[in-house]
Every structure is written in C-alpha cells, then in structure tokens.
C-alpha cells in the first residue's frame, strides 16, 4: 500500500527521484504528516476546553471548602486534599475507566430497567447493548469524540482540584478588613461573597493560576495515555522505521528526532505563554495595593 502522492507541491509526484530539501518538503507534507499537524489542534482544543471548565470546578471546590455547612465543606476540602498526596497520572488512568463505567451504569439503569444479571460479572463489566457508550454501531468519529470528551472531563476534574486549591488560598488572601467593611454595610453573606470577595480575589489567584496553566500545557501529552490519537501517538507512529514497501519515503528509526521536535514545540509554547501571562499580570496589578502595583507606581514616577 503506497501513500497517495502528496499534492501540496507539484514536484512531489515521484519521491524517489528527488532529494535534499525538496524531499524533506514532500516528506513533511504527506497525508500522515498532516494528521500530526491536526493533532496539535487537538492539544489546543483540549487546553481551550479544560482551562475554563477546570476553573469552574475549582471555583465550585473552593466555595464548597469555605462553606459553613460542614458536609459541603468536607466534600470541598477532600476534593482539594485527595489529589495532593497521589500521583496525578494515577488519577488520569483511574478516572478514564471510572467515568466510562459510571456513564454506562447510569444509562443502563435508565434504558434497561428490567435487566436481571449483575453488572460486574467476575472480571467483566456488562451493561445491556443499548447502554453502551458509544453505541456498538456508532461511526468511528463518535468513538473518537467520546474518548476525547472523557479525557477532557478527566483533565478538568484533576486540574479543577488544583485550581480549587489556588482559589481557596486567594479567597483567604483578600484582606479581612474588606469583608468586615461589607458586613458593616449590612451586606448578606451572599452579597459579600459575590460583590466583595470574588472580584478582589483574582489578583491574588493569578500567580497560582499562571503556574497551573504552565503545568496544564505540560500535562497535555498525557492525552496519549488516555487513548487519544494525539501528537505523541503520531510522533511514535511517523518516526518508526519505514521500508520502501509501505511508503514512498523510506527511512530508519527517526522517533528520536520527532520527539526532539515535540520538545522544541513545548519549549516554544511555554515561552510564549510566559510572555503573555507576564503581560496580564502587569496589567492586573496596575493600581492595586500590592507590592507589584506599588513597584509600577514608583517606576512611573521616576
């Protein structure tokens, strides 16, 4: 099976006759290589969805941990605490199976109420066919979307706990006097929370959240472990030895170079994020009564 002739450059029609730069240009634009470029999009999509969802989970967790109702507070605190002592990778591997089984179990309860066999039969997890996720006859893209959604949810739960920790700290960092003033004005608990605490906490949360964003970027290759065809998958796939039998572009074991490429990609990504986050932090601390804000004021004066 030969790959279809690349169409991006006209000189790629016969790969065996070209070499040097042209060969490389053709090689890097084969149909399979386009998939690795697309999977960069997968990484960005994961970041784009996970970041806000995790922030939401984190906000929920932090608010729960602050709650005066102790069962709620216990739930919030244990959500934050449990991810601290355990390797995160264990959570990723755990949640991806656990969530899948949880959803299938729920659907099973709804769709097949008159099923009489146990769901856990020894080493098998059996639900009725109608409750399978995705359905057995679903097209391939449904499987991929479902796998990706599970991965996003897993990332959000784990990173939500970390965000909750950061936000919990930020809520406690808001000066006590601000809350007391709000109470003196006769604001209710709810008003104090939404009008005083939440708007002010972000500047304290930003360093932690920036750090979390960097960590999230560096966690994206773990998608590979959750069974998503991401850049790690394609780097392994494309880099492995290819003989002329299967492709017009035979080469030896190049996986090392593909992963070197990924290293550079992530280095650039972190560098760019660092620059952007630095700008945001400067912008947010302008006019704030913090050390950074004070330094800006002094710099403007001199």
């Amino acid at each position: 099976m030969s790959e279809p002739g690349a169409t991006i450059f006209s000189f790629c029609a016969d790969p065996s006759s070209i070499d040097g730069f042209e060969w490389l240009a053709c090689y890097l634009t084969t149909a399979k290589h386009l998939s690795i470029y697309w999977s960069v999009g997968t990484v960005l999509l994961l970041l784009a969805i996970t970041a806000p969802v995790a922030l939401l989970f984190g906000f929920g967790g932090a608010s729960a941990a602050r709650s005066r109702v102790w069962p709620v507070s216990i739930i919030g605190r244990s959500y934050i605490a449990v991810v601290r002592g355990v390797p995160d990778i264990a959570f990723f591997l755990f949640f991806v199976i656990a969530l899948d089984q949880f959803f299938e179990y729920l659907r099973h309860q709804v769709k097949c109420p008159d099923w009489d066999m146990p769901i856990r039969q020894g080493n098998d997890f059996v639900v009725c066919a109608a409750a399978k996720l995705p359905l057995g006859n679903a097209p391939q893209w449904m499987h991929e979307v479902y796998g990706f959604s599970l991965a996003v949810l897993t990332f959000s739960i784990v990173f939500g706990a970390f965000a909750a920790n950061v936000l919990y700290g930020a809520m406690r960092a808001v000066p006590r006097g601000q809350i007391e003033t709000a109470e003196a004005y006769g604001m209710t608990q709810r008003q104090t929370f939404w009008r005083i605490l939440v708007p002010q906490m972000w500047v304290y949360a930003l360093p932690g959240l920036s750090n979390l964003w960097m960590v999230l970027i560096k966690a994206t290759p773990l998608l590979f472990l959750l069974g998503v065809e991401d850049i790690v998958y394609w780097a392994k796939e494309l880099g492995s030895t290819k003989t002329s039998k299967f492709t017009d572009y035979p080469h030896g074991d190049w996986r090392m170079w593909y992963f070197a490429g990924l290293l550079v990609f992530y280095l650039c990504f972190t560098k760019v994020s660092e620059a952007v986050l630095g700008r945001i932090s400067r912008r947010l601390s302008r006019g704030q009564a913090t050390a950074a804000g004070e330094a800006q004021r002094k710099a403007a004066l001199s």
Partner: peptide, 22 residues
C-alpha cells in the same frame, strides 16, 4: 533549567529512550 522545566517530563522520557536506543 529552561530545557528541563519548559518541556513535559513525559516527552523527555520518550526522547531520552529513543536517543538511548540509537
């Protein structure tokens, strides 16, 4: 410091493994 802190450990492992294979 930048090289090892700026890239994922996961990718570092992969890269090192294939480099060592070579």
């Amino acid at each position: 410091v930048l090289l090892f802190r700026g890239s994922p450990l996961f990718i570092q492992f992969f890269f090192a493994y294939f480099a060592f294979l070579n």
